[in-house]
Simulated scan of single mutants.
Amino acid sequence: MSAVHVVTGAGSGIGQAVAQRLAARGDRLVLVARDAGRADDLAAAFPGATAIIADLGDPTGFAAAVDGAGLPERVDSVIHAAGVVDLGKVADLPVDAWTSQLTVNLVAPAELTRLLLPRVRAARGQVLFVNSGAGLNAHPEWSAYAASKHGLKALADALRGEEAPNGVRVTTVYPGRTATPMQAKVHAQEGAAYDPAAWIDVESVATAVVTALDLPRDAVISDLTVRPGPR
């Protein structure tokens, strides 16, 4: 029986690279899409995948979306790879910059995990959070994003202890700057030239994620930091 993976952020960047790896080996994908149009795009990119149509900016709709998706009884992993970033000084960031990043980067993963936990428990599966170096250290102008990612670390740490008795593994991967569309946006916000070759290749992070998923059951990679290598 093929493993079943629920993936957010499969439309680009790390989430897309991970989904491609899993699909290539014959695993079954359940992809979270913000609307029906996006679900069609993902279906074209990943034939045979199932969609959960849910806007990560509005987690109140997740329960109905999950109930209506026709998911299997067992889910082997939930991979949280979606995220948003909006840089700025604390003195300048408007409240919607805070609420959007906290909602998409923290509240949405918490709610989706809660709803899928019975299926993950049934599979003795795994929840994997793609965090960020900003989840460990906050730098100037990164306050809201870093706060959301620090919160995501707290979510993972608490969940790991709570779900270990149920056989559920919990992993957090902390990539440094990775060559993704989000990184291009960050550079634009910073007013800096963007050279993808200067940063981690997205496939390297995907390798780290899949390694954590495939680790034998006698162990768990709880926290994995991935940094740009020497150039």
Rank of each mutant, 00 (worst) to 15 (best):
L29K: 05
L29T: 06
L29F: 01
V30G: 07
V30E: 11
V30A: 11
V30L: 10
L31M: 07
L31F: 10
L31D: 06
V32K: 03
A33Q: 04
R34C: 04
R34P: 02
R34Q: 12
R34G: 01
D35K: 10
A36Y: 08
G37H: 06
R38Q: 13
R38Y: 00
R38K: 15
A39C: 08
A39M: 12
A39F: 01
D40N: 04
D40K: 12
D41L: 15
D41Y: 01
D41W: 01
D41I: 10
D41R: 13
A43I: 03
A43D: 05
A43C: 00
A44G: 06
F46R: 08
F46H: 02
P47C: 09
G48K: 06
G48Y: 08
G48V: 08
T50W: 08
T50C: 03
T50D: 14
I53H: 05
I53F: 05
I53D: 08
A54H: 10
A54Q: 11
A54T: 04
A54F: 07
D55T: 09
D55Q: 08
D55E: 04
L56F: 06
G57I: 01
G57Q: 05
D58N: 14
D58V: 13
D58G: 07
P59H: 15
P59K: 14
T60V: 10
T60A: 15
T60Y: 03
F62R: 02
F62M: 14
F62K: 11
A63S: 15
A63H: 07
A64P: 03
A64T: 05
A65T: 06
V66N: 07
D67N: 10
D67H: 14
G68N: 11
A69H: 05
A69L: 03
A69M: 07
A69S: 05
G70Y: 04
G70I: 11
G70T: 07
L71H: 02
L71D: 00
L71M: 00
E73L: 15
E73M: 14
R74A: 12
R74I: 14
V75E: 01
V75K: 00
D76C: 07
S77L: 01
V78I: 01
I79P: 00
I79G: 06
H80M: 02
H80W: 00
A81R: 03
A82R: 08
A82V: 05
G83M: 06
G83L: 09
G83H: 06
V84A: 03
V85A: 03
V85Y: 00
V85E: 02
V85F: 04
V85R: 01
D86Y: 12
D86M: 05
L87Y: 02
L87N: 04
G88I: 06
G88K: 05
G88W: 09
K89D: 13
V90F: 09
A91H: 04
A91K: 14
L93S: 12
P94H: 09
P94M: 14
P94K: 14
V95I: 12
V95E: 09
V95H: 06
V95S: 14
D96P: 15
A97E: 08
W98A: 00
W98K: 04
T99L: 11
S100Y: 00
